[in-house]
Amino acid sequence: MSQLASSRRPAVRRTARTRRRIGRLPLLPFIGAVLLAVMAVFIVVVPMLPGFDPLTQNLSMARLAPFTDAAHPLGTDSIGRDLLSRLAEGGRITMSITLAVVAINVVLGIILGLCAGFFGGWIDNVIGLVSDANLAMPVVLLLIAISSVTGPSATLMIVVLGCTFWMGYARVARAIAISLRGRDFVVAPQILGAGAAWTIRKHILPHVLPQMLILAVTDIGVVMLVQAGLDFLGLGVQPPSPTWGGMILEGQKMLRLSPWQAIIPGTAIFMLVVGTQFVSQLLTAESSTPLRKARRANV
């Protein structure tokens, strides 16, 4: 009878599913990782090359197109500065600020999130309130307001951005802390007299850190976009220090004569943001869904 045949049917049937993979890595995250690695090497290696000079002006060599002069592989800008050097130096500055901003937010988010989750009660309420207020405040306007009083500066931008993206980290850290709060390995040391700080550091933080790392990779791209925009508005790093956003601002004025001045740094930003997006796609795909939800709500 047909049922006899079915008795040999395994409960789970494997179906062939092909996914493009390179080694064990899916294709897109692999491309992302390569993009990020190339950018990092570029930023580190170029300053070591002979002829690295992002600042010296040379009007006789102004507006050299890319790939036409061996001494200036990416050409020069409207006042004759070497674009390869400026791209690397601008990348170094932009990346350092982005990483600093992300680091500040991660630390702030973890501390506030863990406190809110671990202690609960009014501490949780106050931190929630601050977080909501922070979400409602557009960064650009906040920076405009403060800059109009103190004058724009890179430090100010770092401080303001440093207080702008922590809510996502705090939300996830809080959720994890709440889920662990009642577990034996968290409660037991407290009964034995361990302090809250020790318990959090020893037993909750290790669960939080990996998730924070995943969020941080995604945020690198987001922060870079915002920061480049602020540099473009002149609210961030001040000239003559090059930044990618600032270079696009300079390039915009020269669009008709030397469009590469804007295109080169713009492409660099694009590659870096896409790189972090691709990499974070892998990380979030392999982490739990609550995190994905938290992330979606954050963006």
Binding site: S2, A11, V12, R13, R14, T15, R17
Partner: peptide, 19 residues
């Protein structure tokens, strides 16, 4: 008649309603 319903999972089909 001989209805088989499967659930499509990441590692293959699981038979939910069997024959």
């Amino acid at each position: 008649k001989n209805l088989v319903i499967v659930s499509e999972g990441p590692d293959g089909d699981v038979v939910i309603v069997d024959d």
